[in-house]
Design a protein around this nucleic acid. Sequence first.
DNA 1: TTCTTTTTGGAATGTTAGATACAAAACGAA
DNA 2: TTCGTTTTGTATCTAACATTCCAAAAAGAA
Lengths: 198, 198
Amino acid sequence: MGRPRQFDEERVIRAVCQEFWAKGFDGTSTADLCRVTGLTRSSLYNTFHSKEHLFRRALSYYVSTMTARQATVLDTPAASGLERVRALLAVIVDEETANRESGRGAGCFTVNTITSIASRNPDVARVVEADLDKRLSSLRLALMDGQLDGSVAADRDPGDLAWYVTSLVSGMRVAAQSGAGRTVLEGIASTGIEALTP
Amino acid sequence: MGRPRQFDEERVIRAVCQEFWAKGFDGTSTADLCRVTGLTRSSLYNTFHSKEHLFRRALSYYVSTMTARQATVLDTPAASGLERVRALLAVIVDEETANRESGRGAGCFTVNTITSIASRNPDVARVVEADLDKRLSSLRLALMDGQLDGSVAADRDPGDLAWYVTSLVSGMRVAAQSGAGRTVLEGIASTGIEALTP
DNA sequence: TTCTTTTTGGAATGTTAGATACAAAACGAA
DNA sequence: TTCGTTTTGTATCTAACATTCCAAAAAGAA
């Protein structure tokens, strides 16, 4: 059977994810990855093949956990369509505030990736594009529900509104990285929601 | 007096700016900079001292030209406050569309910088922070004008609204890098403007 | 135990990075 | 023309980079 692994793969991915999130693909060295995981180069390469594979694993882990969490909020029944979008933005604000206070640094790994390597790496681009499609779909459904229950303006294409909310979220992530705190983010969210009301 | 320069400094800065814009600080090598400028390492280092200095020069050049252009739009008299903000968003859409069609790639150098090295380089962070302050001020003035002339909702703090518009712009930049074309960007802009109306 | 297989530690490899050294070149000033 | 000064081209330096190699270690299977 061979010698067993001395590490937990998901724990390693989590550590790698945080490092790539903070420093980006180009700004992270394999030495950094060894340091934050506690693994040697051998174990890292034996398991994950290359820095780029490891990056994609970390990014996929991030988008799947993030998007799942957000989809859960968006799919909450009972609440109106608008309330579900409002809840999503509240989650974003909470996340950014928590990350800031725990010293993890602000911003979103996905946004950071879109604005850096995604344009130069088709494989990475595919990961973020697939994730974007999922998020747009979830949003679109919630917004259509909102148009049916009367909480969301019915005179706009729900697809356009989904793009708007996605942009708003990205903008809030960038604002957080620019130093915006909870109060400012809450202002952005509550103002941004106004655009959706009938 | 010494030997005269064989290159135009601003032309070099423009070329360097495009390269850093496309690949970021970490993703751009000094060899890349020599290639796009046509200069040797000697001339580059003799004039700009280091890769980091050159990056800050390029970033400063970008933010000053960009923010000046946007301030011009925002300061147009005659038009209402809301119309001036609407005009700003239209400029963003036009820029992104033009960049996309000219193959220059989408997105904003400032946003790319905020989401990558700004958090790890205080000198760079200062440049984007100073620029952010300027943009927020211009926006705030236009929005206050809008509240006075009745085109902008008066029940919100103009500072909060300025942050909202800034986030919206950043979000549109990220959306453009995610593949959003002119139609989608126009939808985001026109939806986003709704949040400002009384 | 012995064999087979896999992981692990650490050194080694080849490449590229940012930055410099230095002499030749190109000008104005004297 | 000669001198002083700055730029330029080439060569070079050291450090860092991603990746590979290989032998020792650790398990199950025979």
